[in-house]
Design a protein around this nucleic acid. Sequence first.
RNA 1: CGGGAUGUAGCGCAGCCUGGUAGCGCACUUCGUUCGGGACGAAGGGGCCGGAAGUUCAAAUCUUCUCAUCCCGACCA
Length: 569
Amino acid sequence: MRYSQIFIPTLKEAPADAEIASHQYMVRAGLIRQLASGIYSTLPLGLRVIRKIENIIREEMDRIGGQEVFLPSIQPSELWKESGRWDFYGKELLRIRDRHDREFCYGPTHEEVITDLVRKEVKSYKQLPLTFYQIQTKFRDEVRPRFGIMRGREFMMKDAYSFHPDEESVNKTYDDMARAYSNIFERCGLEYKKVEADTGAIGGARSHEFHVLADSGEDEIGFCDICDFASNLELAQRRIPSETGEAENQDAKAIEEISTPGKKTIEEVTSFLSITPQEIIKTVIFESNAGLVAGLCRGDREINPIKLKKLLDCEWLHPADQSKQDDSIAYGYIGPIGLKLPMYADAEILQMPQAVAGANKTDCHLTGIYPPRDLSTIKTGDICFAKANDPCPQCDKGTLQVKRGVELGHIFVLGNKYSKSMKAHFLDANGKEQAMIMGCYGIGVGRTAAAAIEQLHDEKGICWPKSIAPFQIEVIPVNIKDEATVTAAETLYKTLTQNGIETLLDDRPERAGIKFKDADLLGLPIQIIIGPKTLQEGLVELRIRKSGGTLSIPLDQASEKAQKILTEL
RNA sequence: CGGGAUGUAGCGCAGCCUGGUAGCGCACUUCGUUCGGGACGAAGGGGCCGGAAGUUCAAAUCUUCUCAUCCCGACCA
């Protein structure tokens, strides 16, 4: 492709509303342009990257027996009412009406549509299992779109759905899918992590996310520095302290009330009493469908509502709104002794040899609490977030590292949630009617491109991995007024193109500096620079974008050499 | 949905406090010189200052409302 024939509007300066590197470079390198909040146009160069990723995904999906389909993005409300999600999904679901005033939505996901398709066509176990996938635009009316294409409202997604007669079958496809995902991200040249994930409201049995580690990521990933344990921090298990026994304290003192006027926060109390947060029991009030409850943990910990909810086994739970609660709760001075609420404690507190806690009385705290003695009746469990340097919950030796990650893929075993509510039934070998078992699997395609930039860039621009680079090689004639330069560049361009190398020839009548800056910004893996000076000696310059390394090679070997280096990249 | 900020030429910004009819850099057009890391000179083109209402002789500037965009948080199959 000639630069003069492809629209690549590069920008010298980053737009003011782009915060993170990938967003800035996607705009600056002319890959995308914004239309509205969270809605972007993809330009020719950007589309080439998207297509590359799509094709890798297609190959890997096809390899595990996935069949590509293309489902409607506009979906009738009836299906969503049937699955129960018309009400449940909330404002994220963009609802629209047609001229007959019939309700539709713009699909944020396609469980309903695919389940409807399969239930109509599949009646027998002999037709199962089935795996369908599609690559298509989704719309989710996010409250707060951000980071450009990273978290858009309209976005390109590969979604796949599988249907099975039994657990064994779904688990096999799930494992295949997990391997396919690893292959995909590997082939995209990304450093990724497969992590345990929350099944969320979907409530399936198994779920993993695929994350690319990047500081701008929105999730926190905890992983062991020794074994292969990796988990989204929102659910990462901890090594439960109670397993290692309760704290012993022969000299346990009696509980004593002390005056702590105005000292409400952990910070204020620790500095006032000259103690550490590890010596404080923090008490947090939550509101749930079972009423108000209190969660207890060590002062340096944060309670994880998801874990607490599981321990309570309740429907919903969230931190109580302090402003609207009654005066019987002394906020800032809450503690487990004498609190008239159901209490749940993190098991770690039983390891505290002595503790300070609120006295449930304004301006007072209690000291000398010995949890194994004073709080033994409280139900305990793992209700806190794991954090960096916690012992690994899987192996004996490792400690937890925490890094931020961008979620590129998510796979679920769905079970029969949709097949049941939407009556996707089949007859098994015994002639018995059963609900199909389902799995669903997603990859954010545009987000993968953004994450690649996030992971592979420098101060000059993008450094594409060759597999998803819009072109592999950029040929740069330094001065197009020099006939020999142009001839050499044209010849090399033709040779490379004929050999199937996607090559961009910068044939613009621009000065060398501009071409170099743009080339670095676009980030094609290899640049071949042709100029009059070196050409006199029959040489051209080959530059590897990522390392910045250059080497002089004879013009007549340039094509061959470049192809060789490309395969080694 | 709560908090914060910003809307002035394609992009980045100044002007606003202290009202007097819009400016800088880059980009763009033409000509000349230059030509291996975002050249130089000269001459140009482009903006109802996000929108509406109000105050005023006069509004980019003051007031009110509204819309949009971004950031932080809550939320997130």
